[in-house]
Design a protein around this nucleic acid. Sequence first.
DNA 1: GTGAAAGCGCTAACAT
DNA 2: ATGTTAGCGCTTTCAC
Lengths: 345, 345
Amino acid sequence: MTETAPRPTLEAVAARAGVSRATVSRVVNGGDGVRGPLVERVRRAVEELGYVPNQAARSLVTKRHDAVAVVVAEPETRVFADPFFALQLRGISKELTAHDSQLVLLLTEGRADHARVGRYLAGGHVDGALVFSLHLDDPLPELVQRAGVPTVFGGRPGWGEGTRSAVYVDSDNRGGARDAVRHLVGLGRRRIAHITGALDQTSAVDRLDGFRDVMVDAAPGLIAEGDFTPAGGERAMGELLERCPDLDAVFAANDLTASGALRVLRAQGRRVPEDVAVIGFDDMLPVAEQTDPPLTTVRQDIEEMGRLMARLLLRGLRGRGGEPGVGGTPSSVVLPTTLVRRASA
Amino acid sequence: MTETAPRPTLEAVAARAGVSRATVSRVVNGGDGVRGPLVERVRRAVEELGYVPNQAARSLVTKRHDAVAVVVAEPETRVFADPFFALQLRGISKELTAHDSQLVLLLTEGRADHARVGRYLAGGHVDGALVFSLHLDDPLPELVQRAGVPTVFGGRPGWGEGTRSAVYVDSDNRGGARDAVRHLVGLGRRRIAHITGALDQTSAVDRLDGFRDVMVDAAPGLIAEGDFTPAGGERAMGELLERCPDLDAVFAANDLTASGALRVLRAQGRRVPEDVAVIGFDDMLPVAEQTDPPLTTVRQDIEEMGRLMARLLLRGLRGRGGEPGVGGTPSSVVLPTTLVRRASA
DNA sequence: GTGAAAGCGCTAACAT
DNA sequence: ATGTTAGCGCTTTCAC
């Protein structure tokens, strides 16, 4: 804990450079209509004084904040079960940094927090918001809509009232699931089971839909509900084995689920992939590479999703106020997935 | 993406309530020297207009920001390997929220980012900073020191120049390690090995020191260097087994390392805990509970560490400016650890 | 191309 | 107890 020194103002720089505040301001903001030598003089003064613009004063007049809120409803997601969250954040952070925007993190855990977040967003402290709302009945999308803050969602939001027009970034969960199941089919497997994710999240629903796209006539017994956790995977795998002892493949909604399933299969003496082929989703390295055997899985580029969310938001921000439509109102993006073959299928 | 409406100002509220701006300001900030009925009238006006104070305008005059920066040097830490990061953030977030402070997240990946962070902190955008700097030679502590921002570190920082007086929150890594090894000794084990963490982080060094405290005469061959990852754990375990085939216990620097070690032990046909007892550190539930067998480990309360960091910082912030010493200059805190017994030792 | 001046919305003396 | 007023540090017309 150290004492904070008084910082130089525009005024000080102007005095030192022998120009007016206006000129300094111009230089600091790109130095457009200022002649070369003057720019140089001002730059030097800025340097010597260690001048840094006061963001509060600036925001007061520009009404911009160069800050974006990232809202994560965390008890509801698997945020702490795998590095998903951290990876998205990294992508977001990189993109925001490149545009000199700050990342304000808002973690929520319940209704009380929702009110707080709503107030904050409505309070106009940030230029926009990036919201992770993977729950079907999440109040967040509506709330954000009401706050009137430009927003991009991470993952397709559930269908609330005003959510139809929401801009979001998502992986092609359905297509990825189809690829996975087709791969299993190509391997000659016929009794293919699916362990779903938490079905109140669109990603889980979409992956299930993808499974059904390929296995149109799958026996209902071949589908067991999981929750994206290893424990859920274990439980579901147990059920599956009991109901359909003759299954020869499993598509798990994510890698964590798959890891749980693998454990149960091994415990029951089934060989993977000889007896049962297993395929996951995510390609979370720390998980997929460490299972026994290493996991074949559907890879999604999580960091890129984060980066894209930020990019979309910033582009939208630029589009407003200026000539409308120059930035253009961004529309949602669905990123492709790729199958990563390892040993389990 | 929606349009943002013009927000009402203090002035508007004052007009509506038939009072002066000053009075509204007082009410909004707690309403101390204002009489009941007036407070009521102003409150109503605020309500009706949906007034929210403009933080930029406020900061401009108060020089406070109600915001704290959280700086994470992420390529350098195991941030993405386990939920450490997310848990600390959660603790921090909770505490900041309780004090109406915002969390500005700064992720860094290299020297260029350091400069940026330095500028941001020096720019006086936040009231203080929470810095995770677990690297021995990390430039961050010095940089923060120079920026003159009140700071609390997560984990004991390496000894740089001005780091002596740094305030930090850490777990009792050394004590926890001692407990772990003593537990092993209590189990009757005599050939106890240690797989270290990345030794450029103080936590790894401290745990190694704890190991040595108990195993004063341990053969050098019983210590292998890891890096806090499962892969590192595997490699180190392999070396250990080669050098000292007769070892009967392993203390791993963290749970991830232990999980790698377990895999190698199993692959080589050693039974755990019968032949070799294994103990980890962290008690990362998703890891420790899912290993086979479940991991005995040293628990540290990560979320509490985060919370404490924030609390310390805020307390320090309160102490400055007012009567000096009322908040008091906070000093570092080392949190106790507890041994959690599962099946592996 | 450059400077002078008018605020942005708020708080904190100071007056009353 | 309440109102008046002077800025906080910056951007941005508007003159020159």
